[in-house]
Design a protein around this nucleic acid. Sequence first.
DNA 1: CTGCTTAGATAGTGGCGCTATCCGAGAAGG
DNA 2: CCTTCTCGGATAGCGCCACTATCTAAGCAG
Lengths: 214, 214
Amino acid sequence: MRLADLSKHSGVSTATIKYYLREGLLPPGRQVNATTAEYDEDHLRRLRLVRALIQVGKVPVATAREVLGHVDDDSLGRTIRLGAALWALPQDTEPDEADPAVAAARVEVDRLLELLGWETSRELAPLSPVHRSLVVAVAALRRLDYPWDAELMAPYGELMMEVARRDLDFMETHASEAEKVEMAVAAAVLFQPVLRALHRLAQEEESARRYGIE
Amino acid sequence: MRLADLSKHSGVSTATIKYYLREGLLPPGRQVNATTAEYDEDHLRRLRLVRALIQVGKVPVATAREVLGHVDDDSLGRTIRLGAALWALPQDTEPDEADPAVAAARVEVDRLLELLGWETSRELAPLSPVHRSLVVAVAALRRLDYPWDAELMAPYGELMMEVARRDLDFMETHASEAEKVEMAVAAAVLFQPVLRALHRLAQEEESARRYGIE
DNA sequence: CTGCTTAGATAGTGGCGCTATCCGAGAAGG
DNA sequence: CCTTCTCGGATAGCGCCACTATCTAAGCAG
């Protein structure tokens, strides 16, 4: 399969594929001679993953490169690889430590994790990018004077834990071993738009039930 | 309060505030004379909401303008205003109707709504931007050959319905009447990063419990 | 040999969220 | 009253990002 074929099968323009090759999102094809390179099914699958991450998951190209780098790192075991890939995902703004809303958010988030009994997350809290994202988001809500506290959020946390259990069950039962890490990344990134859409649909539905459509 | 004071209280630069005024995200202040305009607490609150939407919610400026336009439209009743504002939110790419994955996704999403008994959503499906977003996201997952079907997703939908009920309860009990529509928008947009972070944290937590940290 | 296609390199494009600069009208201080 | 400072408003520009268009030289097909 040459570049043009890769383009035809994926619906991505050759120019864009070349761009992804340059950016290291896609491994180079097997060079046959100076004017020909050969690509295979793995390239096609990777290309589809890249497109999904960038277009549906809205992951920046630089972040996608980092995540995929971890996915491809054969020196790591599966569990570590998965963790490293997920770890690289969030790209939120850094919290402003001088802001009192951030400090308050940090306290509240820690209380939440305690309530939920998420011990691992509490231990990793100072390092985890995901934890940082949560603090930033909570600080923003507090700045708007919305009453946000651990007791209020605990049920949401438990619901998300339920969702996460389903994610992992799903991964265990359906993915072939070779695809598991890729699948975990896809689950983390691509389920997000699905969950968001379901959330909004549920809001519309429940709102219509409570207040009518008018 | 003059523009500089608005800037000091919000931490947003005067240049950026001017930009928001130009873009219609912020109503103009009361013009005192040719060189002075007076702003009040409402402007400050609105500015904070705008910042949160854009920075935390990652809502594009053009979309934020549209959403806030609905929030401010006094000719509408509260329910309609809320619906219109939420309706304006999603900014995903249009589904490619020629793509068979999109057609398949549409069928599967309709089955899902039937399973869930979300009648309102089914009726509004052809029009709803949120519904479109869901179809696009599902199509992307299907293109990656991940087994996605209505039965698998129904529990996620029920969990999101539970989340949505909590959102609306929260809105009912905590917001003053004047802030309800704003709050609904904030809940739709700003709870998203919180939910996402909780989801990822839960994944990390559950993964650590199942497979250890290593 | 001719003419078309290919891979690869490089520079350019368009959109977006600001940001820097300029200007003329007042306010502030002596 | 005059100088100096600051303000609000208008305009043009910047930096980033995800592409995309153009060019070149090498190959292969007839």
